[in-house]
């Protein structure tokens, strides 16, 4: 029983991380029908940027106070991730707005490779995993549960809380605010949104901004939780997040969050209980994806694709 609870907690932590990244995938897809394969690298760069903020910009006397250091690292990571996402949209995707859909997709793959290599060669020591400071926020809470001890770290709690709170704030913003309405209108019918006076470029930049900020924050949370960051994580978590977004229904906020948690839980639970253990946990994730796509191609919460007149 203790093992089960422990794996459920681990799954929620991983799921929260995947959900934060998946939100960026799903929002960008919703508005310009682009699977931004470079989004995983935005997450990775956010992690490195927050580490750089800690190492090179924080005065040493601030570093031991997590309540001071952590928000500043989060801001550093998020700001760099947002700038990166917006620059990417402006120079890589916007010129291809009216090109066949395959062109921006391949561009996204190219941007992904470029970003990974630039960080690997440019960031000091990034050819191997770079350690994150672990002096702060790694307090472990331990408690007895039936037959054993369950462990939950403060970084784990932070990950779950931030992902859920972030998703709720985002959902509220999208459904209640004026800009949120403009984003939904552009996603549903871009031409008619323009007739309402919505500036499509501004809406798209806002979408990339929100996605970038969430990915940047995910990067910090990953760093302090795993206690290192390396250039490969962008690809790996990008694939998880992409799968989560497709599973939940691309374009749906709720779908991305539930898809993220579903993948996190499947990975940890199958790794513990299924034959083959952690060697096969990725298999079960993609088995689920295939099953969902066969029976519900639009994903759990997606709208069926409609052909526009």
């Amino acid at each position: 029983m203790a093992t089960l609870l422990q794996q459920l907690i681990n799954g929620l932590v991983l799921g929260g991380l995947i959900a934060l990244i998946a939100l960026g995938y799903t929002m960008v897809y919703g508005i310009i029908q682009l699977i931004n394969f470079a989004h995983g690298e935005v997450f990775m760069v956010g992690g490195f940027a927050s580490l750089a903020t800690y190492r090179y910009f924080l005065p040493p006397s601030w570093r031991s106070d997590w309540w001071l250091a952590l928000p500043l690292m989060a801001i550093g990571g998020a700001v760099v991730a947002v700038v990166l996402a917006v620059v990417m949209e402006r120079f890589a995707y916007r010129p291809l707005r009216n090109a066949p859909r395959l062109a921006p997709l391949i561009t996204a793959l190219g941007v992904s490779v470029i970003l990974k290599e630039v960080v690997r060669l440019g960031y000091p020591g990034a050819t191997a995993p770079v350690p994150f400071p672990r002096a702060f926020v790694d307090h472990q809470f331990r408690f007895e549960f039936f037959d054993g001890t369950v462990n939950i770290g403060s970084t784990a709690i932070l990950m779950i809380v931030v992902s859920i709170v972030g998703a709720i704030i985002l959902q509220t913003y999208i459904t209640r605010s004026r800009m949120g309405r403009a984003m939904r209108a552009t996603a549903q019918d871009p031409d008619t949104a323009r007739l309402m006076g919505v500036n499509p470029n501004r809406t798209i930049v806002l979408t990339f901004t929100i996605g970038g900020a969430l990915a940047g924050i995910a990067g910090v949370l990953y760093g302090i939780h795993i206690t290192n960051v390396d250039t490969e994580v962008g690809f790996l978590y990008g694939i998880f997040a992409f799968t989560a977004a497709v599973l939940g229904g691309v374009g749906s906020i709720k779908g991305a969050v539930i898809g993220g948690f579903a993948i996190g839980l499947i990975k940890t639970l199958s790794g513990q209980y299924f034959p083959g253990g952690t060697q096969y946990d990725l298999v079960w994730i993609f088995v689920l994806l295939i099953v969902v796509l066969v029976f519900r191609p639009q994903g759990l919460f997606g709208e069926p694709e409609r052909v526009r007149a």
Partner: peptide, 24 residues
């Protein structure tokens, strides 16, 4: 411009459609 085929935002409410009309 009230376009051909009405082109409402079908997944939004009446009120949200009107709010979008007043977007600017």
């Amino acid at each position: 411009h009230c376009p051909e085929g009405r082109r409402l935002f079908g997944r939004m409410t009446v009120e949200e459609n009107l709010q979008l009309g007043a977007y600017v």
